[in-house]
Simulated assay, not measured.
Amino acid sequence: MLLALLLQAAESVSGLGTMGAALGAGIVALGAGLGIGKIGGSAMEAIARQPESSGSIQTAMIIVAALIEGVALFGVIVCLIIATA
């Protein structure tokens, strides 16, 4: 919602479409970094509480981090496509 509003505002003024796309890509990267950091911190806390299940916790953490990276990459690509349009 916020990204759509920012892109509309940036595209309404000629020449600022790339600025809106760059802002959107930055927001996507920031969100992905915060999400993966939260997952890593929670996984380390879980491993500290139950060290015997560290293998399954690490596997789940890596899978979820990869999914977040995929969504972030998709978001950045969409922003770059908007910038070139």
Score class of each variant (00 low, 15 high):
Gly33Leu: 08
Gly33Tyr: 15
Gly33Met: 09
Gly33Thr: 12
Leu34Ser: 13
Gly35Ile: 06
Gly35Ala: 15
Gly35Leu: 08
Gly35Tyr: 04
Gly35Asp: 07
Gly35Pro: 02
Ile36Asp: 09
Ile36Asn: 07
Ile36Phe: 09
Gly37Asn: 12
Gly37Arg: 05
Ile39Gly: 03
Ile39Ala: 11
Ile39Thr: 08
Ile39Pro: 01
Gly40Phe: 04
Gly40Asn: 13
Gly41Gln: 06
Gly41Asp: 05
Ser42Asn: 04
Ser42Val: 05
Ser42Thr: 06
Ala43Met: 04
Ala43Gln: 01
Ala43Ile: 00
Ala43Tyr: 06
Met44Gln: 11
Met44Ala: 11
Met44Leu: 15
Met44Tyr: 09
Met44Pro: 02
Glu45Tyr: 13
Glu45Asn: 14
Ala46His: 14
Ala46Glu: 09
Ile47Met: 13
Ile47Phe: 14
Ile47Thr: 03
Ile47Gln: 04
Ala48Leu: 14
Gln50Thr: 12
Gln50His: 11
Gln50Asp: 12
Gln50Pro: 01
Pro51Asp: 11
Pro51Met: 13
Pro51Arg: 10
Pro51Gly: 15
Glu52Lys: 09
Ser53Met: 15
Ser54Trp: 08
Ser54Glu: 04
Ser54Leu: 10
Gly55Asn: 11
Gly55Asp: 03
Gly55Val: 10
Ser56Asn: 05
Ser56Tyr: 06
Ser56His: 10
Ile57Tyr: 04
Ile57Pro: 02
Ile57Arg: 03
Ile57Trp: 05
Gln58Thr: 11
Gln58Val: 07
Thr59Ile: 13
Thr59Asp: 09
Thr59Met: 14
Thr59Gly: 06
Thr59Asn: 05
Ala60Trp: 02
Ala60Met: 04
Ala60Arg: 02
Met61Gly: 00
Met61Trp: 00
Met61Ile: 05
Ile62Lys: 12
Ile63Pro: 01
Ile63Leu: 12
Ile63Ser: 01
Ile63Trp: 01
Val64Glu: 01
Val64Pro: 02
Val64Leu: 15
Ala65Tyr: 00
Ala65Trp: 00
Ala65Pro: 02
Ala65Gln: 04
Ala65Leu: 06
Ala66Glu: 06
Ala66Arg: 02
Ala66Asp: 06
Ala66Thr: 13
Leu67Tyr: 09
Ile68Thr: 11
Ile68Asp: 08
Ile68Gly: 04
Glu69Met: 13
Glu69Thr: 14
Glu69Asp: 11
Glu69Cys: 10
Gly70Cys: 13
Gly70Tyr: 06
Gly70Met: 08
Gly70Ile: 14
Val71Cys: 10
Val71Trp: 00
Val71Asp: 01
Val71Tyr: 03
Val71His: 03
Ala72Asp: 05
Ala72Trp: 09
Ala72Gln: 03
Ala72Thr: 07
Leu73Cys: 11
Leu73Ala: 14
Leu73Ile: 15
Phe74His: 07
Phe74Gln: 07
Gly75Asn: 10
Gly75Gln: 09
Gly75Thr: 07
Ile77Asn: 03
Val78Asp: 07
Val78Gln: 04
Cys79Pro: 00
Cys79Asn: 07
Cys79Leu: 01
Cys79Lys: 04
Leu80Gly: 05
Leu80Gln: 04
Leu80Ala: 09
Leu80Lys: 03
Ile81Phe: 10
Ile81Cys: 06
Ile81Met: 12
Ile81Val: 15
Ile81Gly: 06
Ile82Tyr: 01
Ile82Leu: 12
